[in-house]
């Protein structure tokens, strides 16, 4: 057992857990943040993606000890109160989800993609960058549209700040 201390969605948390605990299990089972999903559990599908110190990472393949002291952001931590994050809003407006299972991972990945490319994205780049996130419903078409739409919105939002 170890004491794990981290910042999750801006709040300091501390938990006493077994060393073999995966980050995704700490988030879901201990902290009740069940927005982060477990899909394949083999680091292929991306449903479990969260940000560790700003980087989109598959939390089913991270031991809690590796994330000890880190700053974690999950899907629950990106809206500002009632105001959706621009990426969430774009997914809603563009019908970027069907069953919704992959969506939290898609959105966390997509925010990282927009940040890394400073909002300068085209369709081909988005499709390439999303290769670590699997969706079995949409055929990706509206997901790509959502990310491109959000890239524009995030640029505008950043410029306004």
């Amino acid at each position: 057992m170890s004491t794990i201390k981290m910042t999750v969605n801006g709040k300091s948390v501390s938990a006493e857990v077994e060393d073999r605990t995966l980050l995704v299990n700490l988030l879901r089972d201990t902290l009740n943040l069940t927005g982060t999903h477990v899909g394949c559990d083999t680091s292929q599908c991306g449903a479990c993606i969260v940000h560790i110190d700003g980087k989109a990472v598959k939390s089913c393949t991270v031991l809690v000890g590796q994330a000890n002291g880190a700053n974690i952001t999950t899907i629950e931590g990106i809206a500002r109160g009632d105001e959706l994050h621009p990426m969430q809003a774009a997914f809603r407006d563009n019908h970027g989800l069907q069953c919704g299972y992959c969506t939290p991972g898609m959105i966390m990945s997509a925010i990282d993609i927009v940040n890394r490319h400073h909002g300068d994205l085209d369709e081909q780049t988005v499709r390439h960058e999303l290769e670590g996130n699997i969706c079995r419903c949409t055929g990706y078409h509206n997901i790509v549209k959502s990310v491109l739409d959000a890239a524009g919105r995030m640029k505008v939002a950043q410029a306004a700040e």
Partner: peptide, 24 residues
């Protein structure tokens, strides 16, 4: 030893590896 863990952790999850200690 553990580096990025993207091979080791899946292998541990499948119980194909069971190290007493993981050194990051």
């Amino acid at each position: 030893y553990l580096a990025g863990g993207h091979t080791l952790i899946p292998v541990m999850k499948q119980r194909l590896a069971a190290p007493s200690d993981v050194i990051d």
